[in-house]
Structure formats: structure tokens, C-alpha cells
Amino acid sequence: NQASVVANQLIPISTALTLVMMRSEVVTPVGIPAEDIPRLVSMTVNRAVPLGTTLMPDMVKGYA
């Protein structure tokens, strides 16, 4: 089972991601792979991401 990136807090729309905002967790459905966390830092989300939500590729500008 692959770990995915999960929001560690509410991430408001257009917020630049930082390490403290994300954690890795094995979830269903599978989202962005946890090993991509370093790549996600400073990318922005294009929607509000509630606490505990799995980050999907279409939620992060420039990721997909």
C-alpha cells in the first residue's frame, strides 16, 4: 500500500504548501504519492483543502 499526501490542517485556496501542512498516510483513494512531498513545497492549491483530505493531482497548480 502506497502512502499518499494528506492535509495536516485546513489549507486555504491559493495557499503555498509547506512541509507542516502535509503528512503521509495510506488512504483510499490513493492521491499524490508521499514521496512527492518535497516537490509540492511552494506549489499552491487551487481550492480549499480541509484537514484530513487526500491531496489529488488536480488540487495543486502545476503538479499534474
Results as ranks from 00 to 15, higher is better:
residue 2 Q to D: 13
residue 2 Q to M: 12
residue 2 Q to R: 10
residue 3 A to M: 14
residue 3 A to H: 11
residue 4 S to C: 05
residue 5 V to E: 01
residue 5 V to M: 02
residue 5 V to Y: 03
residue 6 V to Q: 03
residue 7 A to G: 03
residue 7 A to F: 03
residue 8 N to A: 15
residue 8 N to H: 06
residue 8 N to F: 04
residue 9 Q to F: 10
residue 10 L to I: 10
residue 10 L to S: 13
residue 10 L to C: 07
residue 11 I to W: 02
residue 12 P to F: 04
residue 12 P to A: 10
residue 12 P to Q: 09
residue 12 P to K: 08
residue 13 I to P: 11
residue 14 S to Y: 15
residue 14 S to I: 04
residue 14 S to L: 10
residue 14 S to D: 14
residue 15 T to M: 08
residue 16 A to I: 13
residue 16 A to H: 09
residue 16 A to S: 11
residue 16 A to V: 14
residue 16 A to K: 15
residue 16 A to T: 12
residue 18 T to W: 03
residue 18 T to P: 00
residue 19 L to N: 08
residue 19 L to M: 10
residue 19 L to E: 11
residue 20 V to R: 14
residue 20 V to E: 15
residue 20 V to A: 15
residue 20 V to G: 12
residue 21 M to W: 03
residue 21 M to C: 04
residue 21 M to T: 02
residue 21 M to E: 02
residue 22 M to L: 11
residue 22 M to I: 09
residue 23 R to V: 06
residue 23 R to M: 05
residue 23 R to T: 09
residue 23 R to G: 08
residue 24 S to C: 06
residue 25 E to V: 10
residue 26 V to R: 10
residue 26 V to G: 04
residue 27 V to T: 10
residue 27 V to S: 05
residue 27 V to I: 06
residue 27 V to K: 07
residue 28 T to E: 14
residue 28 T to D: 15
residue 28 T to L: 13
residue 29 P to A: 04
residue 29 P to I: 05
residue 30 V to W: 09
residue 31 G to D: 00
residue 32 I to D: 00
residue 32 I to H: 02
residue 33 P to Q: 06
residue 33 P to V: 06
residue 33 P to A: 12
residue 33 P to L: 09
residue 34 A to W: 07
residue 34 A to D: 07
residue 34 A to C: 07
residue 35 E to S: 14
residue 36 D to Y: 14
residue 36 D to E: 14
residue 37 I to E: 00
residue 37 I to T: 06
residue 38 P to R: 09
residue 39 R to A: 11
residue 39 R to V: 10
residue 40 L to C: 03
residue 40 L to D: 00
residue 41 V to S: 02
residue 41 V to H: 02
residue 42 S to L: 08
residue 42 S to R: 08
residue 44 T to P: 08
residue 44 T to S: 08
residue 44 T to E: 10
residue 45 V to W: 02
residue 46 N to F: 07
residue 47 R to P: 03
residue 47 R to L: 09
residue 48 A to Q: 14
residue 48 A to D: 13
residue 48 A to H: 08
residue 49 V to S: 02
residue 49 V to E: 03
residue 49 V to A: 04
residue 50 P to V: 06
residue 51 L to M: 15
residue 52 G to P: 02
residue 52 G to Q: 01
residue 52 G to R: 03
residue 53 T to C: 07
residue 53 T to D: 09
residue 54 T to W: 03
residue 54 T to E: 02
residue 55 L to N: 01
residue 56 M to T: 10
residue 56 M to N: 05
residue 56 M to H: 07
residue 57 P to N: 06
residue 58 D to A: 10
residue 58 D to G: 12
residue 59 M to Y: 14
residue 59 M to H: 09
residue 60 V to K: 00
residue 60 V to W: 01
residue 61 K to Y: 12
residue 61 K to L: 15
residue 61 K to E: 15
residue 61 K to P: 13
residue 62 G to C: 06
residue 62 G to M: 08
residue 63 Y to F: 14
residue 63 Y to G: 03
